[in-house]
Structures are given as structure tokens and as C-alpha cells.
Design a protein around this nucleic acid. Structure first.
Lengths: 153, 153
DNA sequence: GAGGTGAAGGTCAAAGAAGGTCAAAATTTC
DNA sequence: GAAATTTTGACCTTCTTTGACCTTCACCTC
């Protein structure tokens, strides 16, 4: 603990404590000036500390009146099981593997039959036209995205 | 939120709230004076915020007694639009395009803020580690999949 | 009714104001 | 001392603001 990035992180987190909602807004250049660093340092902090994995979403707008908005997302609902599945799902999947995974989730009662079929439909639709060698990669991403959406509730 | 354009947008939207019909009329030069800006600023706001995509139509007439009329498009017609959007979403998307699309869908009331944020979270998470040149492609597929799931209900 | 006049609104491009990206350099950690 | 993390800076993209110049329209005069 002690790097500039750490201090900036702390500062932003303090802003959340003072805020009434789980949203804060900053101005990159102003914050940079405040910490006496280059603006891109702020991006560094945001991209290493305020990631989705850490429970944050960052939005921004350029131009006059631009801003950076950091949103804290509430993930209390994400059961460990689903997180495990989503994490352990890997970076590439064959169609058969995807099917097996969906079947297993349905067996476990984590998704309904309708959800399983929707997932399959989306997978098949969004994979058409994707080069063969990329399919497993895109399939894995898609499936993980689908599961995240279904299991989040 | 903070640019002049944002305030003018807000003002116009407030006019709609106060109006009994989904039509309001303004005078460009008078509005410009009210906000202390050049008249063309009003055109800028209209052409960036009150587009057909965002659910508005703008009509105007020049000359003496001229006016600008902004019409809010009826929402009942929108369910098909959502399918259209999902279909017409194309094969490649930049992050900004994806964001804009999600914003628009939220504005139209087709997705909730929570859904929009989930979608963003999924997109951001599933795109990490994807080679740069593939991102737009994978992003388009992911977003279409996500929207299909969200909108089918 | 032709033509002028002033009162709208329209267009477009340049200047200004943010924020983004990427890779090299510096520093810290192991 | 190698690997990981942090810091910096050069260069890029996007959005906003402004101003000069253009077009259209109602109305008036002859």
C-alpha cells in the first residue's frame, strides 16, 4: 500500500461512501490535476481497480461536459455455484461440451428447460458465419454471457 | 450531466412532461437567447438528442412566424422495433455503438437500467482477452444474444 | 403580382473540451 | 535480476460550442 494508484483508488472509494447512490462521477483531468499526475493514470486505476470482477462498471463520455461515471454493481445475488460454473467454463468449447454443460445445469435445477433451449437457440444463431477456428472461443464467451444473464436474478 | 446541450435537452423533455399531447413547439432564437447560446446550438441538440432513433420527429418552418415542432413517437408501436433492432444490429460493433444501443433501448423503456448494466458487464467481461481485431465481431454476437434473451419475455 | 424586406430557421466547418490508447520508462516485488 | 506493476507522454477519437453564411417565408409596397 502506498502507490499513487492506491491513493487514487482510495479516494474514489471514499467518494462512494459519501454518495447516496452507488454511482459517482469524476472528471479525469481534474482528478489528475488533484493528484498531480497525468490523466491516463486515472484510466490505469479504473481499469485495474474498478473492473467488473471487482463489482464496478465504468462509463464515460468525451467532449465538452465529459465525465467518467463509476457504478457499483450489486452482486449479492450471484450464487457461488453459478460463479463457479461461469468461471470454470473455460475459454473454448465444442458444441458437444456446451450441450453437456446446459444439460447438467438443467439437471441441477439451475436453469429451466425453456432457458436451456433458448440458450441453445442463441448459441446456434450467433455462431453462424463465424470462422470454424473461432467457434469454440466465441461459443464459450456467448455461453458464459448467457448463463450470467440467466443466473443473475 | 453537465454540458449546455444536456440542459437544453432536459428543458425540452420537461416541456413534454408539461404538455398534454406528445407535441411541443419552440422558437429557436428565443430558446437560444434563454440559454445564452447561438441558435445553431439548438439544432445541435435536436439533431443529436431528438432523433428518430430516440423516438422523436422534428419539423420546422422558416420565415416570419416560424417554429420548430418536436413530436414524440408513439410507444405502442415499439415491440417490433426491438426485434428489428436485434436483427439489424449488424456483424460488428464498437464499444461506443454497443453502449449507444443499450442506452437507446433503455430510453425506449425496452430494457431496464439493471438489464442495461448487466449487459454491459457481460460484454466487458467476455471481451477481455479477445484479440483486438475480433472484438467488434464477438461484441455484436454477444449483444445480439443478450438482447434476444432479455427481449424474449 | 413582382419585388423587396425582415424575421425566422438551416448548414457546415473550425475551434475547443473532454476522455482513450498504447507502449516505453521507471519502480517495486519476489 | 526477472517479472509484475505503476507511471508517463505522445498521439487519437469523440462530443460540444461557436460563427459565418445560406434559405425560406409572410408581408408590404408599387
Amino acid at each position: 500500500m502506498g502507490s499513487l494508484a492506491d491513493y487514487i483508488e482510495e479516494y474514489i472509494k471514499r467518494l462512494f461512501q459519501e454518495a447516496t447512490r452507488d454511482v459517482i462521477e469524476i472528471q479525469r483531468s481534474q482528478l489528475a490535476k488533484m493528484f498531480g499526475c497525468v490523466p491516463s493514470q486515472i484510466n490505469y486505476v479504473l481499469s485495474t481497480r474498478f473492473t467488473v470482477e471487482n463489482g464496478y462498471i465504468v462509463e464515460s463520455r468525451r467532449g465538452g461536459g465529459g465525465y467518467i461515471r463509476v457504478i457499483k454493481i450489486n452482486r449479492r445475488a450471484l450464487p457461488d455455484v453459478s460463479a463457479m460454473i461461469a468461471d470454470g467454463l473455460g475459454d473454448a468449447l465444442t458444441e458437444a461440451e456446451a450441450d453437456r454443460m446446459l444439460d447438467r445445469l438443467q439437471d441441477l435445477g439451475l436453469i429451466t428447460e425453456g432457458e436451456r433451449l433458448s440458450a441453445k437457440a442463441v448459441l446456434s444463431r450467433e455462431l453462424t458465419g463465424i470462422p470454424r477456428e473461432l467457434s469454440p472461443l466465441v461459443r464459450a464467451r456467448l455461453l458464459r454471457g448467457i448463463l450470467t444473464l440467466i443466473l443473475r436474478q
